[in-house]
Amino acid sequence: MADETRVAFRGGGYAPRRVAWASAATLIGLIALWQALASLGWVSTAFASSPVAIARALGQLGASGELWGHVSASLRRLAIGWVIGTASGLVVGVALGLYTLARSPGMAVVSALFPIPKIALVPLFIIWFGIGEGSKIVTLAFGVFFPTVINTLAGVDGVPRGLIRMAQSFNLRPWSILTKIVLPGALPAILSGFRITTSTAIILLVAAEMIGADRGIGAFVLQAGNLYDTDNLLAGIVVLSAIGLCVSWVLGRLERAWLRWR
């Protein structure tokens, strides 16, 4: 061959893979680094605590039963507030998605109220519902409600009209169209909304507990902060992080079980 040039490969990259051990190793490495810096005295444990001290604090909190008291109070608020906000948000979202009569008035109200930082409403809710559980649960439910409405509406809008026409062409009843076409079709959007609303709910939970509560993880973290007790403060934050991870794991399982068809 007189004149040949090899064709060079140029299609590589732009396709990152997941490497499970790298994720775990990074986290373990960072924690080890933190511990090392603390043990060497390069960072002050009074300000930043250390992984070992946090673990010890968690152990003591667990043994004394104090931890469970705070966690159970928080989980109860979280569950009740999230369920109320989600249930009402689903009903309103589906109604806005399906009915002309509901859509424009409903969207006006939702658009007007959605941007309000819900924390700002806590004092108002305390006036309305008292300093006890009522105001905290309402704050959570309120914060969960709006993103749920918006995600459900988007999900319902995204259901292919062709499927609804198909169902109508076979004379399926309206209830069947709702439960067998519209809701399953909106489910992916609804479930990804759950990821947003659960983290919103945890944020609002902690904020509401910091404003007026003596039990709950938010209250515990605030108290620890007032005492400059960074071990317990960060132990509370570890617990919050664990709750977030658990919720996210459960949602992942639900998605895998319910969206197998994708």
């Binding site: 062709g162 499927l163 198909m166 169902a167 076979f170 399926l172 067998k180 399953p184 079709g185 068809w261």
Partner: peptide, 19 residues
Amino acid sequence: FALVPWRSVAGNVSLVLED
């Protein structure tokens, strides 16, 4: 085709008989 993606083949045929 207008098949319901979250139903199996049999489920798609069954759907129109369920009401």
